[in-house]
């Protein structure tokens, strides 16, 4: 569904790259998660893939279309949910969706049904200018489904939502995917990524550090993490070390030799911890 080769993008064309040498493929029916801290280049990548940003360097095909000479027809198959909650503030929720639906050439879904699906039932006739940020974000998410896309781009669909609603959004994505929809998902929520994604790509400072399935990553890193509790200057400290990375092994050695160990055991790593291990960066 998506093929990206040697993708570079510099906003100011000044040699500073927001994404550099990005390569990946997303198969049909797959949920691919793009994980990284903010400013990593996730939205930039999605922007290029959806034709919103001009392709500067690299080869990109989406749903069989070469992004270099994009065809407007492509967008009948594509759904895009934005990071910014970009709806018409002067229109009601329902009007927003109805207007948007008319811009497509394919059969579209009932606005009211979608509004209900994202938990905004009863709010359909309220102007979105009066919505909270989270409500607008859900509406943008709902809007991205209106043309029954087979290729679905979701930029931070759960960011800023409370956990119950985030879980509901997650279930919707899962359901659509079961019907064969391919999903390109950008997030820094590791739990969502862990549960949803067939494969994840870790991106930091514009570069992909690793691509694999969450399951493989856990097999690879998970069982080789050691959590140590020890005392330092009279207070209790807790640290987590990999047993494969030399740097971690050295540090662990030092603690065992020099500090008083309280507890020590191996554990299954979360995706977040794996991310930190692999990239050396926190996911914020």
């Amino acid at each position: 569904m998506i093929k990206v080769k040697g993708l570079y993008h510099s906003y100011l064309k000044d040699g500073k790259y927001a994404v550099k040498d990005v390569n990946f493929e997303v198969g049909e029916g797959e949920i691919f998660g793009f994980l990284g801290p903010s400013g990593a280049g996730k939205s930039t990548t999605q922007g290029i893939l959806t034709g919103l940003l001009q392709l500067q360097k690299g080869d990109v095909t989406v749903a069989g279309y070469d992004i270099k000479n994009i065809s407007r027809k492509m967008f009948n198959k594509i759904g895009v949910s934005f990071e910014q909650s970009n709806v018409y503030n002067k229109m009601t929720a329902k009007e927003n969706l109805s207007f948007y639906a008319r811009l497509f050439d394919v059969e579209t879904r009932d606005p009211l049904e979608l509004i209900e699906l994202v938990g905004l039932k009863g709010k359909e006739n309220i102007k979105t200018g009066e919505f909270s940020k989270g409500m607008k974000h859900r509406l943008v998410f709902a809007r991205s489904m209106i043309n029954n896309p087979t290729m679905w781009f979701l930029d931070e669909p759960t960011t800023g939502l409370d956990p119950a609603i985030a879980a509901a959004i997650k279930d919707i994505i899962k359901d659509r995917n079961k019907m064969g929809v391919t999903v390109f998902l950008t997030t820094h929520n590791m739990y969502i990524a862990d549960e949803l994604c067939d494969r994840v790509g870790f991106i930091v400072e514009g570069e992909i550090k690793l691509i694999d399935s969450p399951k493989n990553l856990k097999l690879q890193y998970g069982e080789k993490l050691v959590e140590v509790e020890y005392t330092q200057n009279g207070s209790v400290k807790k640290d987590c070390f990999s047993t494969i990375l030399q740097k971690d092994k050295d540090a662990l050695n030092k603690i065992i030799n020099e500090k008083e160990i309280l507890t020590m055991h191996t554990k299954e790593a979360t995706l977040e911890e794996i991310f930190i291990k692999v990239t050396g960066r926190e996911l914020v």
Binding site: T50, G51, L52, R72, K73, F75, N76, I78, V80, F82, Q84, N86, V87, Y100, L103, F104, D105, V140, R143, N147
Partner: peptide, 8 residues
Amino acid sequence: AAINVTPT
């Protein structure tokens, strides 16, 4: 941006 990802 939203309009730009429709066939418009």
